[in-house]
Design a binder for these strands. Structure first.
Lengths: 238, 238
DNA sequence: TCAAAAGTGTTATCATTACACCCATGG
DNA sequence: CCATGGGTGTAATGATAACACTTTTGA
């Protein structure tokens, strides 16, 4: 037992909630099957202990890569879970991260500490280890809140996508019946953050315009909007 | 050194960014002057080490009370700061919390580990210990973002307040010149989350209607709005 | 020629903005 | 009676919601 401290310390871990979209129509998260106790054999969020010389974010990315083979993504800190009894091994505090990815771009491979890796539809999740269900719930709520005021979700779609795919994505994330096609399109178009990038081919119906996300324009919009917001004051969107 | 672990562990602390409003017109935060090294004598956010049997939130509330005498407030988790070099004593990860309080309701007293306690206007902050300036910045941005879509901020005002005070509060938090009085009032009134609670007295001008925040109505609104949001779909407020 | 999905026109309603004006009080 | 802040009327503009319709493709 080489590491000693004057006062007791909680262990520190990171966990990742990785959302992926399947065919624009099913929202999934990435889970691993634990290879060790506690909860050996159970499904859990990818994650693990933070090393002494890495940032929390690198720890999350490292564990994610080590356990699932998934890399090159933008993660965002979600929340820190620190209930004293959340881990049977003792006091373990976990910093949770989340990310959105395009499913096809991220093949998964089970690796260290994981017996298996798989994408699960969010409404057919298995029983999860630790308090990972709670972490997932917080992440889903955050995603749903975020999607309403940021063009989040472009990360979930392939590079080129149709407006119908985009709309389906929103319906999926929000868990909504059906948005009005006309109004959805008007709104999106008016924002001007899409650019046309060719036509769909080989479909048994009128081919759709393909779009990609115009990141420069989006960031410009964000900047403009910032001053606009300052001028306009509060919105109280509730 | 009685506490030993197989692997090294970061120390875990909590820090609190407590916002208060002075005369509806100056936004302040609560700082302590450190009584020990490192940064002895410097101003810093109240905070300290997490005990093994308390939640993160209780740790934050406990430290806040121990160092400043402030208690009975609703804190919300802000972000977790974990850069390997953020503390000269070694690896220390800190979970930051923030809260809004009414200045008058919360007298401050310097206590354990603190040589002094004081409210500082946010645009006249002293040099802060550790990365506490960064933590403050994140908190301020969060507050500004939050204020736009939630009737946050009622906590900052006294029980009974005038619409002008409310408007001044928004102007202060957002750091804005002046919101349009007519439109501000229309918007707030239409929300229906205020209830009239008497009249101002003893002022050298037309006395203002006093209001208090109708919490039940607000929560009802939140619930209704939830279904509305589901129906309406995304807003993309940017 | 038909099914399937893409895509457009239009209108009523509601919210937002930008003004200018009147009102009640204490000193 | 006037300075001070409290409080309202209103019209132009823009956003949103709700519907129904036309277009283009492969099979």
């Amino acid at each position: 037992m080489p590491y000693s401290y004057e006062y007791p310390r909680p262990a520190l871990t990171v966990d990742c909630v990785i959302f992926g979209l399947d065919e624009s129509t099913q929202l999934k998260i990435l889970l691993i099957q634990r290879g060790h106790d506690p909860y050996k054999g159970s499904w859990a969020l990818p994650g693990g202990f933070v090393d002494m010389n890495e940032t929390l974010e690198s720890a999350a990315l490292r564990e994610l890569y080590e356990e699932t083979g998934v890399k090159d993504l933008f993660i965002e800190q979600l929340y820190t879970f620190g209930n004293p009894d959340r881990d049977p091994r003792g006091r373990v505090v976990s910093v949770a991260y989340y990310a959105l990815v395009n499913l096809e771009d991220h093949p998964v491979v089970a690796r260290s500490d994981a017996e298996g890796v798989a994408w699960f539809p969010i409404n057919q999740l298995p029983r999860l280890a630790f308090d990972h269900w709670e972490i997932f719930t917080v992440a889903l709520n955050r995603l749903r809140a975020k999607v309403r005021y940021q063009p989040v979700g472009f990360e979930l779609l392939p590079e080129k996508f149709t407006l119908t795919q985009l709309q389906k994505m929103y319906e999926t994330i929000l868990g909504v019946e059906e948005l009005n096609k006309r109004n959805f399109r008007t709104k999106i178009q008016k924002m001007g953050v899409l650019k046309e990038v060719g036509m769909q081919t080989g479909v048994a119906h009128r081919p759709a315009q393909l779009y990609s996300f115009n990141k420069e324009k989006y960031e410009q919009l964000l900047r403009d909007r910032y001053y606009d917001l300052l001028k306009r004051g509060m919105d109280f969107e509730i």
